[in-house]
Design a protein around this nucleic acid. Structure first.
Lengths: 220, 220
DNA sequence: CCGAATCCGGCATGATACTG
DNA sequence: CAGTATCATGCCGGATTCGG
């Protein structure tokens, strides 16, 4: 039984033959943050079901977009991670994310929200044109989960994990981050009222705010 | 009966709720080239069926990504076209196309090929970093169908139609263009053996070749 | 010719149960 | 925890039909 295909000699059609099935790109979104176990993926994709996730992972692995690795002892568990080819989808996925974010209002009561998707959302807001002086590794904690933002060569990449010696450290919770992202609350207010804590060199902080288009009202 | 949704507060999930269903992005690919009638879309998307195309168009129109217009008399027919919001998907769709093109070998016998998808493929190859001096409107004829390539501000956009006074005019057929794109035949050979005809200012031609990464072996 | 509605067989998906 | 097996449901693909 052969997989269904658009059967067109067209880059987009071929990309969609592979990535266009339900859940596939969301699986890759999860992997943008780093290697993930089966269970981690299930948790981040409510509704997918084990069978379908298993099938998607096999398809992606067969296509060379992800691979499977066994963690060294004592962990010993399997993780899935992006290959170099999969990694090259990062700007494309962030581009789609950015497009979708414009039609993202305030969260509905029944909508799934995770610190992971918010971390990706932050990365999608990154604007290379205003990124001067924002280079380096920064730390972002959302609901006490640590992420690191790597900015180099005018590009950003987010990962789960703790930064070694971050240039800037930011700490907040989902609700406050959402309020900041959709413009309900300014950065200045967020800081003043204690919804967000930022630590680091003032100049670097300003540069970061600019790089993510959050400098509407400047933090002091 | 309500449309199915990932129901996540995430830009990518929202984008895929709308664009992730089967055929949707390929419909938009067709519209990248300009307004299209229902029948044109059917022809460019073999296998879709009238019902599903009709449904997709309604979904996209409801979401404000496309709109429907009635051509002035005597044509009087309906056309579908991208709204400004839909137009902003152009770089995203071209990015996915570029990613997919790398796994596009030589055409299979039963694969659908059209001058339209090839025109999009050409645009997807555009490299802003090497685009100096390639600005302007150029004409590209594929299998006698005219397209125009607009290059401005380091960005490219393709449309169906005839350019007024093109800076450079290129004329070729699908097979020759495919051979050029996938590296089977160099630009120099294509010209020497008459598979491609190019007309225009030599400096502009060179700039174009560079902008599309085709200058491996230089013409002349 | 344009566009949409309908019916139907088959496959993809979603949920749960089950095994190592 | 990491998947496989199973089954009900609903989406998709193809054909046909129908009104403008």
């Amino acid at each position: 039984m052969t997989k269904r295909s658009y059967n067109q000699y067209c880059g987009l059609a071929v990309a969609l033959d592979l990535l266009g099935e339900r859940w596939t790109m969301l699986v890759l979104r999860e992997l943008l943050l780093g290697p993930r176990r089966f269970k981690d993926l299930l948790d981040g994709l409510p509704g997918i079901g084990t069978g379908l996730l298993s099938q998607r992972l096999k398809e992606l692995e067969a296509a060379g977009v992800i691979d499977k690795a066994t963690l060294p002892p004592p962990a010993g568990s399997n993780v899935y991670r992006l290959t170099e080819d999969g990694e090259s989808l990062r700007p494309v996925l962030l581009g789609l994310t950015r497009w979708g974010m414009t039609r993202l209002g305030t969260p509905e009561a029944d909508q799934y929200i995770s610190s992971e998707t918010l971390a990706v959302a932050v990365a999608a807001r990154f604007n290379p044109a205003t990124a001067h002086d924002a280079a380096g590794t920064h730390r972002l904690d959302i609901d006490a989960r640590p992420f690191l933002l790597d900015i180099a060569n005018g590009q950003v990449s987010v990962r789960a994990g703790e930064a070694d010696r971050p240039v800037v450290s930011i700490s907040t919770d989902s609700g406050s981050l959402i309020a900041l992202i959709n413009g309900t609350r300014t950065l200045a207010d967020s800081l003043a009222e204690g919804f967000i804590a930022i630590d680091g060199d003032p100049a670097a902080i300003m540069a970061l705010a600019r790089a993510f288009d959050l400098a509407a009202s400047e933090p002091e």
